[in-house]
Structure formats: structure tokens, C-alpha cells
Design a protein around this nucleic acid. Structure first.
Lengths: 262, 262
DNA sequence: TTCTATTGTGCTATAATGACACAATAATAT
DNA sequence: ATATTATTGTGTCATTATAGCACAATAGAA
């Protein structure tokens, strides 16, 4: 048992709001797949969303920012609250954790900081935030209770703690609606991208194929894409153009509300 | 000081989650205007949303239902969570209340139940729920801390506690988006209504006028309205038909996602 | 040079939208 | 009775959006 951990637990109990947590669904897009950043618990094959607690002296939104930055190293990305989960069963005491080695870890902490174990095993209400990030700009790293922090494909999510699976499903539903109002590609794609990249992103979120030529036209008609040089892929076919977002025009149009639908 | 109040405060502190509340924006529609149900504090000219706390043994959604029922007498109406408000300033200690008679009330309670005053004046994070109800079916009544409970027109909201004004603004934004996915008229209008009633409701939510004849066509094409007898208004002009929702067809189409836009 | 796979644009049929026209009609005024 | 008035239900039409398919352009391989 590491002294840092003891210090951390003491600090959490003293400085954070009880029974109230934040979980971040940090979403990225790579190789035509949506991914979510997950942590694996030490000693156990249980994964969870990166989360944390709200300090008594900070706004909930600030807490979400802090947790996101701690986890990805990113500041000022697209981060939004989407839902609060308040089932009465949301307590670590209801977890299979009780039967596993993680229980021993808690007991070991208990010996040194009984208050923390009581605190952490109470019923929690958690507010979900989602962040859209460019995977290539992140440097994820595990925290004190985890030994791995990895991007996991949405189509292949490992076993998750408590209701974290439900939280991820909820955010995807939310994203599908948001897609009609926000061109979220700007956050998930690298600065320059092809129309195919953008289309695959839309298809991944909507979980349905879109007609290629019409998709391209519809996007370009929005008027905030800048066309750059072609991207020579090495393949034996016509090379696609690269595009980027014209942030000026983009912001103008967001103000008005985008308003398209698939 | 009434014994009920003392019992109530004791019960709240013992049986509810600390620092976590629910506020309900209960929305109705009458005389072509959107209304919201508000409570007026005893002794003070300060209004607030009907709210409450989450018992340790109930889901947050259940708590919202309970609070709604307590306030309006209505069960099983359209009730949904929409956002959680977590500013660090969300405490009754930051209220002008300190300078007013309400402070004396708290102090009076303090004399009898010090724990409650500490509890109630801590920082709260509140989750907003909104309910859509048929005003004609409600029988609002004030609670122990209020002396009035009234429907207030959205265009004429009185001075509100803390961030309750912000909460109402947020829910209206949310409603505007939801309007594209849910025909919320079914909850806000009486069983039979005219197309004009429905149009005025849409206009109130969207805060913009809609073209009458196109609105009517668009709605009827959705296919879940039943036409009834005409409504003789007494006016010197053609009488409009009354319509109601065909719940069967309505539910079928909701499943698929409505999908229209204004 | 030919071939292949993919891209950017063209074309057309169909549906949705917005703006306005107009006949039908319930009650009132004459 | 008849004309008048305001409002409703439906018609029309131009414009725009959508979906489906066609096809030429083209980067590299054969």
C-alpha cells in the first residue's frame, strides 16, 4: 500500500462532495471506429469510465474539465454534460467487487483510512459528461487505482463496473441526436481529413450506411469546409481531396443552428 | 412554529441524500401561453420551482415522480430528466434570503433542529426534471415552506430563488429540440383540441410564428390525429374541427422516431 | 497503354417546404 | 332572406431537399 494512495483517499474524503461523482465518456475516432477511453482496475479484469469527484470549491463543470485533463492531457476540448444517473443501486457495495481481490484492497485501505472506505462505498449519484477528442493528441495514462488506460472500440467494450455500460449507451443515443445540430467532426477528426473519413464517422455514430455522393454534396453545401491538396493514398485510384473546417464560417452557422437530418 | 415542520425537517435530514436535490419544471399550456408551476415562499416575495430531496431508498427518477405527484396530484405523466446544475454557488447561504425574514424562519427552526439548518444550507447539486401536464387536470397546492403555488406565464416569471430562472431557460431550450422528435402536444393539451390550439403551442415553444395552412397539413400528414365533430365557437366564421391523438398510431410512429423540423 | 477502384460531379424522380389563393361556413348585420 | 365577415380546410405552384443511379476523371498497378 502506497503512501500516495493513502494521502489521496484522505484528501478525497475531506475535500470532495459526498455521494456525488462525475464520469467522463471520452470519445475518439480512429480506423473508422468510435472508441472510448477506459481504465482497468488493478488486480481485476473490470474496466470503468474515467471519473472523479467534485471538490467543495469547484463547479461541477470545472470538475469534469479537471478529470478530463488529468486523464487525457487535453484542455479546452468539446466537453458537455449529458445525463445524471441516480439508481439507488449505484454503490460499490452492490458490485461483484465484493467477491474479488479488489475487496482486499479496500480492506487494506480500510485498515489505514476507515473513513475513506465508508465514503467510497456509499450510494453515489453520478453525472455523465462526454468529451470529443482527437485520439492522436491524447496521451492517456492510468490513475492510482488502475493499471491500464486504453482506447476501446465501441463494438468491443470489455466488462464494465456498475452501470457504466448503460452510461455509454446513453451517450451514444445523445450523440445521434446532437449530430443533427453540431458537426462534431471538428472535434473527432484530425485537422485535415477526407470526406470518406467524415462519412465513416457519421456512419459509426448513426449505425447505418449513408450514400456516398449525396453525403459529400450535403456536407460541402454547408459551406464551412476548405478544400486542400489531394491526399495521395498509394492506391490505384483517384485520390481524394483533404478538407478542413473553416472555423469562422463554421461558428457563424452554428450560431444559427445547423439543422440537417439523416 | 408548527410541529409538522419540525418532524419534516428531522425526517429529511435522516432519510435523504445530502447535497443532492431535484427541481421539477412543471409545464402547462393555457390561453395560448406556456405556464410553469411555481411556489412562493412564506413571508417573502421569492418564488421557486417545486423541488425536493432523494430518499436513500429510492431511485432519483422515483423521487422526481414523488415530488411531481405531491405537487400536482398527477401520476404517470410525461416526466423527464434534462440537466444537472452544479455551480459551486448553489447554496442557500448565497441567497439574499440571509437578509430577509426567511432567515428568521431558519433561525427559528435552528433553535429546534440545528442539524436541519446545517443540512439545508450546504451546497446543493440539483437535477432538473421537466413534466408536461394538462393544466386542467392539476390541483396545485403549496407545501410547508410556501404559502402559494400557482401557474405563472413564462413571459412573466416572478423573482426566483438561486438559479431557478436559469433552470427554466435551460428546459425551454431542451423542449425546442425535443419538439422535433416528440409531439408533445399529447401531454399539454386537453383530450380534444383544434389545430389552432396545437399551432399556438408550437409557436409558444419555438417562439416564432408558423404558417397556418402548412402547419395543419404537416400535422395531419403525420397520421395519428383523429378528426371529431366541429367546435362551434360562437364566432361569426367557419368552425374548426376538434382533433385528438390516435394513441395506437401515435405510439407506432414514436417508435420509429417522428422526425420533423421547423 | 490498359485496367481497376475510387472520387467528384451530373442527372432525374420524388418528397418536403413555403407562400399564397380561394371556396366553405358559422354567426352577425342589414 | 340576404349580404357581410372572419376563419377554416384545401388547392396550387415554385423552390428546395433527398435518394438513387450514372459517368467521367484519375492514381497507381498490370
Amino acid at each position: 500500500m502506497d503512501q500516495n494512495l493513502i494521502d489521496f483517499t484522505t484528501q478525497v474524503v475531506d475535500e470532495c462532495l459526498p455521494g456525488k461523482s462525475i464520469d467522463c465518456v471520452i470519445i475518439g475516432f480512429e480506423k473508422q471506429q468510435l472508441k472510448v477511453l477506459l481504465l482497468k482496475w488493478k488486480y481485476e479484469d473490470i474496466w470503468c469510465l474515467p471519473g472523479g469527484f467534485i471538490r467543495k470549491d469547484e463547479d461541477m463543470d470545472q470538475a469534469a474539465q479537471r478529470i478530463l485533463e488529468m486523464r487525457t492531457g487535453l484542455k479546452s476540448v468539446y466537453l458537455n454534460q449529458f445525463y445524471t444517473f441516480g439508481s439507488k443501486k449505484r454503490s460499490r457495495l452492490n458490485e461483484e467487487v465484493q467477491l474479488t481481490r479488489m475487496r482486499h484492497v479496500l480492506e487494506e485501505i480500510h485498515g489505514k483510512n476507515e473513513k475513506f472506505v465508508t465514503w467510497i462505498t456509499q450510494r453515489f449519484i453520478t453525472t455523465g459528461y462526454f468529451a470529443l477528442v482527437d485520439i492522436r493528441k491524447t496521451a492517456p495514462h492510468p490513475d492510482m487505482l488502475s493499471d491500464r488506460c486504453e482506447w476501446k472500440s465501441l463494438s468491443n467494450i470489455p466488462g464494465l463496473m456498475m452501470d457504466h455500460k448503460e452510461i455509454i449507451l446513453k451517450v451514444m443515443e445523445h450523440l445521434r441526436v446532437q449530430l443533427n445540430y453540431l458537426p462534431i467532426g471538428i472535434s473527432l477528426l484530425p485537422q485535415k481529413f477526407t470526406m470518406q473519413d467524415l462519412q465513416k464517422l457519421y456512419e459509426a455514430i448513426l449505425k447505418k450506411p449513408l450514400e456516398r455522393s449525396n453525403f459529400q454534396r450535403k456536407m460541402l453545401k454547408l459551406g464551412f469546409f476548405i478544400r486542400h491538396e489531394k491526399q495521395l493514398t498509394g492506391a490505384a485510384n483517384k485520390a481524394p481531396y483533404l478538407y478542413s473546417f473553416d472555423e469562422m464560417k463554421y461558428n457563424e452557422l452554428i450560431e444559427k443552428g445547423i439543422g440537417f437530418r439523416y
